[in-house]
């Protein structure tokens, strides 16, 4: 961990894996890029010709999540849910999780998984959205 994590002023790509959208966040995210991502994901779900089976956000490369990014993640999940799509946060690091809890952001109602593989397995096991939160 000697090198600086890359700063991303450019938009974060949203990849399609079958019917699942995969977003990989790395290093430090600009506020603008996070807001753009929220818009992109919602648009992709809404405009998809086939129903989107789920959204997986890979956080394993993220070193900090502050309340701004936390809010964006919660809002992505909330809008996806309105569009009948599940969102799973995958691979959050221990230090990030401890900090978020200390900050008071436990993100209730957000599904989580240890890594992308597990997240994909969870989506395949229960492809439909469960009714409640």
């Amino acid at each position: 961990m000697t090198d600086f994590p890359a700063v991303h002023p450019e938009p974060v790509p949203v990849l399609a894996l079958g019917d699942i959208l995969l977003v990989t966040l790395r290093g430090d995210l600009y506020d603008g890029a996070a807001e753009q991502l929220q818009y992109d994901i919602t648009q992709r779900i809404a405009n998809s010709p086939v129903p989107v089976g789920g959204v997986v956000i890979d956080l394993s490369g993220v070193e900090i999540v502050d309340s701004f990014l936390g809010r964006i993640l919660a809002e992505i999940a909330a809008s996806a849910r309105l569009l009948a799509t599940r969102t799973i946060l995958a691979g959050m690091r221990p230090a990030v999780a401890i900090t978020l809890v200390e900050l008071g952001l436990t993100l209730p109602g957000l599904a989580t998984a240890l890594d992308v593989d597990r997240a994909l397995a969870m989506l395949h096991r229960a492809p439909s959205v469960e009714g409640g939160a």
Binding site: L89, G91, M92, R93, I98, V101, T106, A113, L114
Partner: peptide
């Protein structure tokens, strides 16, 4: 309680 919440955020 925080440990429980943090573990959940990590997917466990």
């Amino acid at each position: 309680m925080k440990t429980v919440a943090a573990a959940r955020l990590m997917g466990a």
